[in-house]
Structure formats: structure tokens, C-alpha cells
Nucleic acid binder design. Structure first.
Lengths: 275, 275
DNA sequence: TGCTATTCTCGTAGGCTATACGAGAATAGC
DNA sequence: GCTATTCTCGTATAGCCTACGAGAATAGCA
């Protein structure tokens, strides 16, 4: 008897990911597989030995998505990379959807964030900045993360550990529990989105071999033929004042930090406002 | 001789969208089709009459994506909705990629934002809030927008008009052109991301018929079996203090506004800081 | 009227995707 | 060696985009 396989079919095309259908309990068991000290060895030694294990499958999926894009991490692609038949994967994973959840949580767990008792930066901002830089690095290592929806994410050890760290950092502000949570939410919204865009952008330049400058140059016709300065006076003024960045990495970095710093300014000022 | 069709194939699976390949000029011509007063009627009346026009195709794509998700806006789906053969669409649109660009820019243009000469809210914040609310409404009408990458977006009239408005709103702050642009970027990053998440979340509840509360309840086992309070003290404390929202629309709205307001606070304080 | 050049229409086919089903291979213990 | 159990994976179905090329419709001209 096959283990999983009761899944209702697809509609998982185009980066939609409900994480929904099968058994939530089963997915949880897979996500937390290395965190509860092993079920009471119900595993007898009956039957054929497996050639793989779940970690190998998840790692192969991540490696493929890293090197050749999320689309390359198809069931057949992962199977080929592991040297097995496509259908063999379904012994280890109930469906592609669950595989994605597992890939995501594993990658979320990669961030090196101090656990509750461990030493951490002293100031609030430095604690947030640690989260920010770790998250940015994560997105750069795995740009495909940016194209995965984060509502109803995999509730695995990786996601929960990062959330705990961010909340604990926000807690030192001394806001109400409710506001602490809201502040953390605003911060992740900005960081995930800005870091994701940054990483996607870099990846695009790498993959297509076309710099953003080259991309704009290809659209020279826009300014030549279609752009109406009278309808876009501010853009024109900023352009004339050379207010658009030079497309360098430093400019992008400055942009990222500007938004985050202003958001943190705003949150921090709540403290002094109501002393 | 077919008009378009020189496209290099695929790799457009899974919500990647480079907008790259074909002729950028051709895509621009399609995007701006209704904004330059018609090319010098080079169109003789030779040949078979077309049964459709580009606007019908784009509208059908948008309608399908709105009602049944982005995946439903496939070439065959759109063709079926229009009552023509799949391949007929390729007379009007070079590829699926371009169709998506056209759908996106049309939807971006839906926002009701005052053009340069027109009356607008007086205060800076009200001007930004107008942009914010229009954008939020747009995402709610078209939740599929959230799953489309915004780097290298379609540079059509819709995108440019919205950008002009936002920049002109930021310009009243009197920052340097460079900082004005950076501020606008931070604001769109937050708004697009938060509004997209909000809309995706609502759509998910509608589509799956499962509320977020129900989703969490389905994962009851997490708290029961896997969650370790010692490793997540802050989460536990916030939970005990009922600091997690009640999942109502009002709570989500408050969350959205909190982040935006703090970001605007931070940006605004730049003015007074360097008088 | 009929011919021609031109344009639009669209069936077929090829190469991708996920996965249900079921036949077969391998193993532990008897 | 037999059996119960487990893992492996070929085949088939239904979807995706789109290259190709045959055929239909039309305007203008002879």
C-alpha cells in the first residue's frame, strides 16, 4: 500500500500554493521530522530498503531551484537529478506542494539567528538589522523564494524560529503585545518584499545576461516615441536632475536601507511619543 | 506571413516573467496602442477581416484571471472565452508573456489618480493615502497581480501615470531629487507588498472556502505536538496576552495602516531633521 | 466574373507539467 | 523457499505554450 497519495488534483499552476488539501497533520510531521526525537520506532525492518530519504529529496529540490530556477525543480527534474524515476519521489513526499513547503521551511531555517538564551546584538536596531541582513542573504542564495506566496506559509521550525527572533527583538521596545506583533508584521512585510525584489533583480541580470541598463536601453523607443513630458513633469524633473540611481549595487543597497531605516524610525518614535 | 511569432520558447512557467525576449519595440507599440493618435493609416484594407481586436483579448484575459485565477487565463482558456481557436490569439499578441504585460498595464491604469494639472488632496499624507487606497482597491479587484513579478514591469501608460503621481506627491516634501525617488520607491515597495498580501489572503479565503481561523485550527497539532514554548517564549507571551489579532478585516486593515503610517512618519521626519 | 495578393483562422503535433494506477522488484523473517 | 511488506517506476491522462502550414475570407483589378 502506498503511503501518501490521496491528494486532490492540481490547480497548483502559476505559483499559487495553498498548502491546503491533504492532511495538515501529515505535512506537519514532515516539516518537524528532525525536531521530535523520532517516533517510538514503529518502523520495523520489513520490505524493500529505500534508496533515498526525505532530506535528499528536499536538498535536491533546493539545489535545482537555486541553480536553474524554480521551474527546474519539477518532479521529473528532481527525480532525474537523483537518478530515480519520477514516481519514486511520491514515496517520500505526498505531492509537489508539500515538497515546496519543505524546501521553503528548510531555507527559512538557514538564517543564523540567536535562539532565546543565546547572545545577541544589544540595541533594538542592531537586532532588527541582523534579521534584515540574514534574510537578505537568504533571498540572494535562493531567489526563487520571492516567487512563492507567503500567506499560509509552512509552519515548520524554520519559520517559527525566525518569527520568534523578530518578535523578541520588537518586544524590547516595550509596546503592547498587540502592537509588538503589528510592528513585527510591518517589518517582515518590508524586509521580505524588498529583499525578494533585490534578489529577483540580481538573478534576472545573471540569468538573462542583460543588465538593467541594457534593458532600459532596449526600451529607448519609449522616451523617443511615446513618453509625454507634459503628462510626466515630475519624472522628467527627476531625470534631468539625475535623481534616478545609477543602477549600481550600492544604489540598490542604499534604497533598501532607506526604506527600512525610515520604517524603524517611525516605529521607534512611538516609544518617545507616549512616555 | 504571420506578423509576430519569432519568440524563443518557454521557461515562462511558474510566475517568472522576463518580459524580455521578442522585440521590445513591438511590445511598446502594443502597450501604448491607445495613446499615440494612430499610426499614419498604413493599414490598407487587404485581406481577411479580423474577428477580434487586441482590447477584447486583453479584457478577456483580465476577466478570466479575476474570476478563476491567473491559471485560468491560459491561451486556450482566453480563446475559449472568446469563442475562437487557441492559435487565433497569436494574431493579436506575440506570446503569452506579452498578453500578461498588457493585462498588467491595463489594470495599473485603472487607478483613479489625478493627472498633473488636476485637483488633488492638499496634504502630503492625503496624497499618499489616495495612492494607497487606489492601489489596495486595485489589488482586491485583481488579486492575481500579487503573483506577478514587478521587476522589469511593462512600461506602459498605466505604470507611468501611477509613478508620476506618486513621485509628484513625494516631491512636495522638498527632499533632493534622489531622495524623492528613493522615498517613492520605499513607499511602493511597502504598499504593493502589503496590499498584494491582503488581496491574496482574501482571495484564498474566498476560493478555498476556508477561513484563516479554520486553517490554523487544522494545524492544531502544531501546538499540541511540536511547539516548544521554551524555544518560543515571546510568541507564547504574545499568545497568552491575546496579542495576535482576531483575524477580522478590521485587524488586517489596522495592520496595513500601521506599517504605512510608520513608514510615512519616518520619511516625514527627514524634513524637520534637516531644516 | 474570376484571379491574385494579402490577411486572418486554427488543427495538428511536440515537448513540457503533475500524478493516479498497477505491475514488478527487493527484503526480513519464518 | 515462501510470504508479507515496502519501495520502484512505466504508462496513461489531462493540461500547458507555441511552431508550422493548410485553408478561408477579403479587396482590388482584369
Amino acid at each position: 500500500m502506498r503511503k501518501f497519495l490521496d491528494s486532490r488534483n492540481g490547480e497548483a499552476t502559476m505559483a499559487v500554493r495553498h498548502s491546503g488539501g491533504g492532511s495538515a497533520d501529515r505535512t506537519l510531521a514532515l516539516l518537524w521530522r528532525n525536531h521530535k526525537p523520532a517516533q517510538p520506532s514503529q518502523q520495523t525492518k520489513l520490505g524493500r530498503r529505500p534508496t533515498l530519504d526525505l532530506d535528499k529529496v528536499v536538498d535536491a529540490g533546493i539545489a535545482l531551484a537555486d541553480s536553474h530556477g524554480l521551474a527546474a525543480a519539477s518532479m521529473s527534474g528532481v527525480a532525474k537529478a537523483l537518478g530515480v524515476g519520477t514516481m519514486t519521489l511520491y514515496t517520500y513526499v505526498p505531492s509537489k506542494e508539500e515538497l515546496l513547503d519543505l524546501m521553503v521551511d528548510q531555507v527559512l531555517a538557514e538564517r543564523d539567528l540567536p535562539a532565546p538564551g543565546e547572545p545577541r546584538p544589544t540595541g533594538w536596531r542592531d537586532q532588527i538589522n541582523l534579521y534584515s541582513e540574514q534574510t537578505r542573504a537568504m533571498f540572494h542564495r535562493h531567489p526563487w523564494l520571492a516567487s512563492i506566496s507567503t500567506i499560509r506559509p509552512p509552519v515548520g521550525p524554520g519559520m517559527l524560529a525566525a518569527r520568534e527572533y523578530l518578535l523578541s527583538a520588537c518586544a524590547v521596545l516595550g509596546l503592547s503585545p498587540r502592537q509588538t506583533n503589528t510592528a513585527a508584521l510591518a517589518i517582515t512585510t518590508y524586509i521580505d518584499s524588498a529583499a525578494g525584489l533585490e534578489a529577483e533583480s540580481d538573478q534576472l541580470e545573471r540569468e538573462t545576461g542583460q543588465s538593467h541598463d541594457a534593458w532600459w536601453t532596449e526600451r529607448w523607443d519609449l522616451w523617443e516615441t511615446y513618453f509625454d513630458q507634459d503628462r510626466h513633469p515630475t519624472m522628467t524633473a527627476i531625470w534631468n536632475a539625475k535623481g534616478y540611481g545609477d543602477g549600481t549595487r550600492e544604489a540598490a543597497d542604499e534604497s533598501y536601507r532607506f526604506g527600512l531605516d525610515r520604517l524603524l524610525d517611525g516605529i521607534e518614535s512611538l516609544k518617545s511619543r507616549k512616555p
